[in-house]
């Protein structure tokens, strides 16, 4: 009986507690930078596409909402011919971001992507690509990858020695 009265009193005291509700459309909540919202494709600091069309995100995606087609430019640099994410299927699990070897695909703290028409939730590459590098400002895959592409030969990457001359005896 006493516990009942004690409960009533404690609940009554909640009248003087601050309210926890965030009145959403008027007052936006703070979302952490790593919040898993709308997916974007980022660019490297030079402005080129980061995506190398390796298909790892599409493979990792548990709901198969990513589809893309790889192609190469004349210098041998791989990029997606098209890149399509169906956000009506996406479950925002972030596996694509974890799978991405080049930090190209990233999830952002934006979740306001409602549409009246389901078809409008299918985002093409133009909708996905942003102009900046996203969460990793200095990273550029092609500058550290030991691959020969246009404008960069073998051994010219960062932290990479020039290729050894196999026929030379010198160390």
């Amino acid at each position: 009986m006493l516990s009942v009265i004690r409960t009533l009193w404690h609940i009554f005291l909640h009248a003087f507690h601050p309210r926890v509700t965030v009145q959403y459309p008027d007052e936006k909540p703070y979302l952490a930078p790593r919040y898993r919202g709308r997916i974007i494709l980022s660019r490297d600091p030079d402005g080129g596409e980061r995506c190398v069309a390796c298909y790892l995100c599409a493979v990792a995606c548990p709901v198969d909402c990513i589809s893309l087609q790889a192609t190469e430019d004349e210098t041998g640099r791989r990029y997606p011919e098209f890149f399509r994410i169906n956000f009506s299927r996406c479950i925002f699990c972030g596996y694509c971001e974890e799978a991405c070897p080049t930090y190209a695909i990233q999830l952002t703290p934006d979740f306001e992507i409602c549409e009246y028409n389901r078809q409008n939730l299918v985002y093409e590459k133009e909708d996905l690509l942003i102009s900046g590098p996203g969460k990793y400002p200095d990273y550029s895959f092609w500058r550290v990858a030991g691959v020969e592409i246009g404008g960069k030969g073998k051994g010219e990457s960062e932290r990479e020695d020039p290729p050894a001359d196999l026929r030379s005896l010198m160390p």
């Binding site: 609940i11 909640h14 309210r19 509700t21």
Partner: peptide, 12 residues
């Protein structure tokens, strides 16, 4: 009732 319940549950 809804407002008072909310008040005691720290809602609006």
């Amino acid at each position: 009732e809804r407002r008072l319940l909310a008040l005691w549950q720290d809602r609006y």
